[in-house]
């Protein structure tokens, strides 16, 4: 079948491309911060927004953005406190979010139990022209934040204490990152679904960092991998008639496994040839282990 013969397929591909670009671009900051699972949690919270939107006959996407953004701010405030009990608070927020969402979606109307699945696991082929506009706008916001604020977001995720002493607006940056994550979750809802969006934020980054040396390089490669997985996954799923969102994620994970194995083989093939420092810099291995 010619992928471009149908308008719905073209719209699906556009949505998948935007998602594949935007999700890893913001996901890299979450990975750097060891918050890889936050996207998943915000996906849960966003479902309550979807339910509210359906129930009140407003746009589920806009409602999801608002609710997920509120959830993101709450998560950030909990994280900032850094208390052990915060972990439990997040669990309550996330599971409350998904339960609330399921209840509200089911309340809204009879036909929406079908749409519940589409919000949870994506349904790119039903992307409407209106959806494409929303996805495009949300994706553009995410990319603008991830790329333009990169020096500041990098600094605050890399070494928050140092960023604080540099006089950077730490809380503003953290909340910007959290809200942008929520926007990403919502933008990706159509392509891969709320339960799978986190995979597209994290897995391409994990794959890219096996072979890259710097942060910027990792970001660009992860974005390329994200687009690749989304477009190829969508095409494969339409050929094989498999679930598109899950196929995209499985493809991303398959490339992660392949690259990890390959990188391991390459590393073994040429040991210590990579970065010879000047001899004066050499340190006994114990020093490295010590740290």
């Amino acid at each position: 079948m010619n992928l471009f013969a149908y308008d719905f397929m073209i719209r699906a591909l556009i949505g998948a491309t935007v998602t594949g670009l935007a999700a890893p671009a913001i996901g890299i900051y979450l990975v750097q911060r060891r918050l890889s699972l936050i996207g998943d949690g915000l996906g849960h919270v966003a479902l309550t927004g979807v339910g509210l939107g359906l129930l009140t006959h407003n746009s589920p996407t806009i409602a999801a953005v608002v609710v997920a953004a509120l959830g993101a701010v709450a998560v950030e405030l909990v994280r900032e406190r850094g208390k052990a009990s915060g972990d439990v608070a997040l669990a309550i927020l996330f599971y409350g979010g998904i339960s609330g969402g399921v209840v509200l979606v089911n309340l809204s109307s009879a036909q929406s139990s079908r749409s519940l699945t589409s919000y949870l696991f994506g349904s790119p082929l039903t992307t409407s022209p209106g959806d494409i506009v929303v996805i495009g706008v949300l994706g553009a916001i995410v990319l603008a934040v991830a790329l333009l604020l990169r020096p500041w977001l990098f600094a605050v995720c890399h070494d928050e204490e140092y960023a604080r002493v540099s006089g950077l607006p730490i809380r503003l940056l953290n909340i910007t990152l959290a809200v942008t994550t929520a926007v990403t979750v919502t933008a990706a809802m159509r392509a891969v679904g709320l339960l799978l969006v986190s995979a597209l934020m994290v897995v391409p980054v994990a794959t890219a960092q096996q072979v890259t040396r710097g942060f910027n390089a990792t970001m660009y490669l992860a974005m390329a991998l994200g687009v690749g997985a989304s477009v190829v996954g969508l095409s494969v799923s339409s050929q094989l008639d498999t679930a598109p969102g899950a196929t995209i994620v499985l493809l991303a994970i398959a490339s992660f496994v392949a690259v990890t194995l390959l990188a391991g083989v390459v590393r073994r093939a040429r040991p210590r040839q990579s970065v010879p420092g000047p001899p004066a810099d050499a340190e006994p291995p114990e020093v490295l282990l010590d740290r």
Binding site: Q32, Q209, T212, G214, F215, T218
Partner: peptide
């Protein structure tokens, strides 16, 4: 060490 994302 950061979250494992390489940085030059």
């Amino acid at each position: 060490a950061g979250g494992g994302v390489p940085a030059t």
